[in-house]
Nucleic acid binder design. Sequence first.
DNA 1: TTGAAAGCGCTAACAC
DNA 2: GTGTTAGCGCTTTCAA
Lengths: 338, 338
Amino acid sequence: MTAPTDRPTLDQVAERAGVGRGTVSRVINGSPQVSAHTRQAVEAAVAELGYVPNLAARALVTRRTDAVALVISESEERVFSEPFFAGVVRGISAGVSAAGRQLVLALAAGEERPLERYLTPQHIDGVLLVSLHGDDPLPELLRTRGLPVVLGGRPPSGYGGAYVDVDNIGGARAGVAHLIDNGRKRIATISGPRDMGAGQDRLAGYRAALTAAGLADDPALVVEGDFSEVSGLQAMRSLLACHPDLDAVFAANDLMAIGALRALRDAGRRVPEDVAVVGFDDSPLSRVTDPPLSTVRQPVEEMGREMAEMLLRLISGVDGDTHQSAVLPTELVVRASS
Amino acid sequence: MTAPTDRPTLDQVAERAGVGRGTVSRVINGSPQVSAHTRQAVEAAVAELGYVPNLAARALVTRRTDAVALVISESEERVFSEPFFAGVVRGISAGVSAAGRQLVLALAAGEERPLERYLTPQHIDGVLLVSLHGDDPLPELLRTRGLPVVLGGRPPSGYGGAYVDVDNIGGARAGVAHLIDNGRKRIATISGPRDMGAGQDRLAGYRAALTAAGLADDPALVVEGDFSEVSGLQAMRSLLACHPDLDAVFAANDLMAIGALRALRDAGRRVPEDVAVVGFDDSPLSRVTDPPLSTVRQPVEEMGREMAEMLLRLISGVDGDTHQSAVLPTELVVRASS
DNA sequence: TTGAAAGCGCTAACAC
DNA sequence: GTGTTAGCGCTTTCAA
């Protein structure tokens, strides 16, 4: 048990190794400009003393902190009620720590002011932003500060920065196509918020599938939800009221699909005999519903990892392209509900 | 759009305000040793220049970083499959940022070595540890380094540090008592891992309720699971095989309760007519099962918040008591399954 | 009450 | 190749 406070410094290592401070610094930072012999002496001293570099001192002079921030700008409830975030965070965490950097977590529920003060190049090397709504000015603000930024999810058109997304369009198309293949003709959708890329794209995929199959794209069969379970329940109710003849519904996420399931049960409709249901997200919830929910799986963890890696690339500047993007594939999971 | 890199420094503020550097520092740090007049001048200059203190420089001299680490030492899968963590993280995040500090997130899946290098007083002011298993030496190690530590969940006996827990014993007791009140006589339990406080305590609560009601505490009715759904399924199967006469089961968490529900359905047992089920956690999953799961709600978010506040108290040293603890109440939620 | 000065531990530019 | 030096931006004595 060493004394808590007095950890060895660079000069102590230097003295011990019988070299100058600069040389130790070179060894620590892996500079090739050091003879093998000296390097060994230094490494020995480092090991003996249990030396660990003081990050604050290093950050002060290099103006880099080796820390990246993850900003989740989402309402309190949704951040964790949707397993989506959990997976993304896990992937990001893995990617960031694999690069030997630290992840600073910022849940920005509304009041972003204190946060903005912190999101500057002197505190952080880059920012990961997840679940952006509408035309949030934050990413652009950060970019004008010279901070590398990577978004999770497709940003509103017009944004010129980097992002990683999953194939929402393709996933939705596959889900609806599956319904069509099973002979469904009147397929409604409970869409996501129009101010989010995921909402827009899943709706687009729904339309694309209908069009591809030569089915009419009836606007009356589209009801907008907000990704919450109650919104799904209400949407399904109104759908059932106006269009009792529908035989399938594609919900833009699992939570809303579950709400729809409830509404269908309340209305005495059988699933999938009367009405087939497909959701989106492949959340754990989808396995425990009755019947289990068919849904579209998105590789959330990979998404997080890719975000981290893209950001680190931007930070190290290995490729100057600050508006690169990646879209990860999604996959339909068929269960008893469709 | 200011130039990205050259943010104002303390001296620039000092010059602008026509005072010395030290004075600006005092104002920034809220020292009372400054005349109202000077303070105003400085504050004006700060506002005009948009000055933000350089944390690295400050940390270098104060030897504090204003950052606390959250270490979740849990297997990849569980961290986020259980909503428990989500809630705790949210509470912690709120508590930490309310104090103007940053939260550094570290998911320690097994390989803790790189992490340990980082968890030192020169990088972090304190550590929050969640989901400790067995007798992990990490908390003691950190404490010998002089780092304030707060644990989430009761530590193994013998640990002398601070922690926050929920009333697992009371919650389990209430769940089982409810079963007894409804006339159940042969109540089995699927317990959690024996190497975790939560597992031990929920089992203790189960036993306490039986004893209090004068029922026999039959060891054969206790099967250990690992908090996963499949373990619950298997446990229920073996329970059913050996004790077909059981009329209720208390599962130490919702995931295992869901597994049990499945096994019961597979075995043709009706819930709750034949066998009543109670879980623990009040996860969102518990609402969508068929039938909806009765379960014990734990205030996870409050737990996180309390952890953060306790740690900040330890850091600021307002009370020297480093082995304080808090236990938050739990609450039974009765649904159709019991 | 306030200014000046001395570092905190490190990197990088510059000599040798 | 390696030692020396000059700061990075800040807090904190120490005088005044």
